[in-house]
Amino acid sequence: MTVPIIKLGSYLIVTFQNELTDDMAVEAQDKILNRIRETEAKGLLIDLSVIDVVDSFLGRVLNDTAMMARLMGTQTVVAGIQPAVAVTFMELGLKMKNISTVLDIEQGLDLLKSLE
């Protein structure tokens, strides 16, 4: 199983699935960066709406991916973090760096458009 990356206009939309292993998360990171280069995407939208665990490893991969995308000139928006995941994320002591967050994909696309 791999993480699907969909191109929509000048944006990339990535939906992380629940059974995401550490390997898959790192593989997704590589794939996303390559797709950004291939497609010259202006924005990256990561959809976490079905993810019910964000542990320290996935938290790090998200931050790293956003930082790497930013180095390449692409903004990252994370959409759909569940309430329980938000609570746990804070208690775990994780931080979001260089990432804008929105409620859902629709808001994410609006935000990316406004950033252009």
Partner: peptide, 17 residues
Amino acid sequence: SIVDQCRIATGISELAR
């Protein structure tokens, strides 16, 4: 609760890793 389920699952994830 759903939040506790998430805390427990996340805690297990950290220990297993």
